[in-house]
């Protein structure tokens, strides 16, 4: 059972600021959704390998070569706030 405090903790991990109303909605909906998914727990999967990749591909590498950098004007073109060559953010703490 997911509690409102769990939702608050998860929201902080996910960097989402939720209103009280949202917290209540998500608490209810996450419980509904995960409750509906409980059927999974009935399946016996002790000896089943988890599948992280559907492909049977291994060892995909690139050679250690330097290629074209993004032109400076493009690097910061989409930036909401900048200071000359850098991205600018509010204070860290």
């Amino acid at each position: 059972m997911i509690k409102k405090s769990d939702v608050e903790h998860v929201a902080l991990l996910a960097r989402l600021e939720l209103t009280d109303n949202e917290k209540e909605i998500y608490t209810r909906q996450l419980n509904d959704i995960l409750g509906h998914f409980e059927s999974l727990q009935e399946l016996e999967t002790t000896n089943v390998e988890p599948m992280a990749h559907v492909l049977s591909l291994f060892n995909v590498f690139r050679e250690d070569k330097v290629d074209r950098h993004l032109p400076s004007e493009n690097v910061l073109a989409n930036c909401p706030d900048r200071d000359e060559d850098c991205f600018r953010v509010p204070k860290i703490v």
């Binding site: 997911i2 769990d6 903790h9 998860v10 991990l13 996910a14 996450l30 995960l34 998914f37 999974l40 727990q41 399946l43 999967t45 089943v48 390998e49 988890p50 599948m51 992280a52 559907v54």
Partner: peptide, 21 residues
């Protein structure tokens, strides 16, 4: 975020990867 978080990973995410198999 919830299903990956500490304490729930095995029950949800890992379980899902196994059933995907």
């Amino acid at each position: 975020t919830y299903v990956l978080s500490a304490g729930y990973y095995d029950a949800y995410y890992l379980k899902a990867l196994k059933v995907r198999t």
